[in-house]
Amino acid sequence: MLIDVNSYIGHWPFRRLKGNTCKEQIARMNAAGIDKAVLFNLNGIFYKNVQSANDELFEALNENSEYRKRFIPFATINPIYSGWKHDFEESVKKQGAKGIRLYPLYHGYELSNPACIELAKMARDHNLPVAMALRMVDSRPSSWLDVSKEWALKDTLPLIKAVPDAKYLILNLANNSNFGAFNKDELTMVRQTKLLMDTSGRMVMELSDMMKNYGSDKFAFGSHYPILDPVTGLLRIEAMRPEEATKAEKEKLYYENAKNFLGL
């Protein structure tokens, strides 16, 4: 079994994406042997009223009964925009979102923002993961209209410290994600938090070492497709030698960690 914890539908305004519909995602998943995928709607980054993107996501999922079985939808919430609590209620309780997605760099707030912290507490109280990416795209070749700031893993700490008993899905480890960036207390906190990181990011170079330092339950296969190619995130797992990851440990990365984290 294989679960992809990082995939998208929707549009990216600065270049044409392919594979960004439910139908195309299913075709990709079948070709790769992916059983289920966490699904986000990219349009939630760009619509001021993110609930429109959530509506799009669930309308797309309702087009085919298979989509509801294969995709694990996360709703985008912008905690500094009017009506975000209503959006939470709508997307979680009525539409069936299985997690919350934040885009602080695009929506223009800090993780220490009281509304963001309140949102994380609401997600915690509903046992829903909070997802964030260190970056959406490589900022270097992106458009002059795109945000230029990217995060390191440590930049997620303000929210984790504020709500340490929530669940966090950290995606696209594209910048410094080394455990050495944390002090002893911070590293202990990261290890103790219900935190799952995907394998799509460029800094996932020594996955076996990262598993040793953060914990083997802290990682799961993710592709970040169709922004990144659909293979590299899996290749990082497959290329580990038996002495670096046992078959059982690889199974955790393929699906067990995701299954446990997402409560499937």
Binding site: A31, A32, E238, Y254
Partner: peptide, 15 residues
């Protein structure tokens, strides 16, 4: 990849 007793999954790509 091995399937559980009650479920079958798409075949996993052999990278």
């Amino acid at each position: 990849s091995p399937a559980s007793q009650d479920e079958q999954f798409p075949p996993k790509r052999s990278l």
